[in-house]
Design a protein around this nucleic acid. Structure first.
Lengths: 145, 145
DNA sequence: TGCATTAATAGAAACGATTTCTATTTAAAC
DNA sequence: GTTTAAATAGAAATCGTTTCTATTAATGCA
């Protein structure tokens, strides 16, 4: 899937524009989550004309299409990352270096079961995210967050 | 605990001001999450002089002290609620009527175990929240979110 | 290949939730 | 009471994010 960005975009009924592809390429290379502003800075190296709203818009569209994921950051700003793992799972994010690591465990099935049984409601989405410091950042003397 | 707000505030080393108590009383009465603005509107009924920044500041302090909880809302705005249940658990939030219901199940222990084992990092916090429609809102023809 | 259609974009501008700032007031300790 | 440090009001600023409009580009089809 992630070796063919044009196909990925086509499936989402999004036109294949150089900028969309570039955003995916940028996120593909990173093992850390990035802010729209940071992605924009990287885009400016490749494109003479590139607006920040374009970056915001595309990130939102790609996120809607479940190609990329949003981070729930304590500072409440937007961050995105592209996760190669296509099976359902969740993430550990390092608040210091921003590395995203998979958590191949999800109590979500049980939770959805419980929600259906007890709450009798409909689940639209769920968040399971662990925030902390990765092993490398843990070794450092100071942990800037 | 929640029958003695002054004591609760004292434990957090926060001065017992009428406005802090009022914020807790307002949240105590509600079964739904509220925005700072909404809480401010309710405060204005009781106080002639009451600034929105005061509401924001106090909500943040109370949240820091784990007396109240933040909602991770898809619209990325701030919402708070006071949960009576003191044991560790998580929540189902109805995106339509904003009702908060307890989920007495948390895969967090397993998750923390996995994080420690595999990721060897330090967990600072975690989010487990289920978003959806409660049984009452599910019955309605239209679901305004 | 060229044309028509529709989506995507740039750039400027607006937006608005949240935070900051400073002078004033208030809680609490003694 | 007096003192001290925290809390507050009110105005203002901040700044991440979104909206708006004219222009450009991608796509589908002749």
């Amino acid at each position: 899937m992630f070796n063919d960005f044009p196909l990925t975009l086509k499936k989402l009924n999004l036109k294949i524009t150089p900028k969309r592809v570039a955003i995916l390429e940028i996120l593909m290379k990173e093992s850390v989550f990035l802010s729209p502003e940071e992605i924009w800075q990287k885009m400016k190296r490749q494109f003479v004309k590139i607006g920040l709203p374009t970056v915001y818009r595309n990130l939102e569209e790609l996120s809607e299409g479940n190609i990329i994921s949003k981070v729930n950051h304590p500072n409440r700003q937007l961050y995105y990352y592209l996760c190669h793992n296509q099976t359902h799972h969740h993430h550990f994010i390092c608040l210091s270096c921003r590395k995203v690591e998979d958590i191949n465990l999800c109590g979500a099935k049980e939770v959805e079961e419980e929600v259906k049984k007890k709450i009798k409601g409909k689940v639209l989405s769920h968040i399971l995210q662990v925030n902390g410091l990765c092993k490398h950042c843990l070794k450092k003397k100071t942990h800037e967050i």
